[in-house]
Design a protein around this nucleic acid. Structure first.
Length: 133
DNA sequence: CGCGTGACTTGTA
DNA sequence: TTACAAGCCACGC
């Protein structure tokens, strides 16, 4: 059972943390999105930092495609754990066909994820909770 | 309860 | 192009 965090409880029964993960799960293979974008789609505008915090809390065994989330400059953000994680992120993206330039940045104009109607349906379903009245 | 820190963004210079 | 400040939120001390 998701624990509510007060401020969002009045607006949704699903925590901001889970809504963020729902959005990230909708990012298709070979595409990337930004922290700010995820926050906005999760109904948390201007809270990109919260997205980074949510992803940092993911277990190593997660199925959430966290590697498809980059910063606004198209660069892979360093993790507090070290540079290994960012390297893994880059390798995973390249394996999906995402191209990095000489500066180590993704071309967001080419690889940015665009939300489709199917994505919105999927998000809405996740938001309602498939087992909720 | 205050303060610093952090996988961020945006605006300004 | 880079550098700095302000804004936002959760967490540990």
């Amino acid at each position: 059972m998701p624990r509510l965090h007060g401020s969002e409880a009045a607006h949704a029964e699903r925590s901001a943390h889970e809504r963020i993960l729902d959005v990230v799960r909708c990012v298709p293979r070979g595409r990337v999105t930004t922290y700010g974008r995820v926050a906005e789609l999760a109904g948390l505008p201007r809270q990109a930092r919260l997205v980074g915090y949510a992803l940092s809390a993911l277990p190593a065994s997660t199925t959430v495609p966290w590697h498809r989330v980059v910063n606004a400059a198209g660069a892979v953000s360093l993790r507090s754990s070290g540079a290994d994680g960012s390297l893994v992120q880059r390798l995973r993206l390249e394996r999906e066909g995402v191209h990095f330039d000489a500066a180590g940045r993704v071309d967001l104009r080419t690889h940015a994820w665009t939300v489709t109607s199917g994505d919105r349906t999927r998000l809405a379903r996740a938001g309602r909770g498939s087992a909720r009245p």
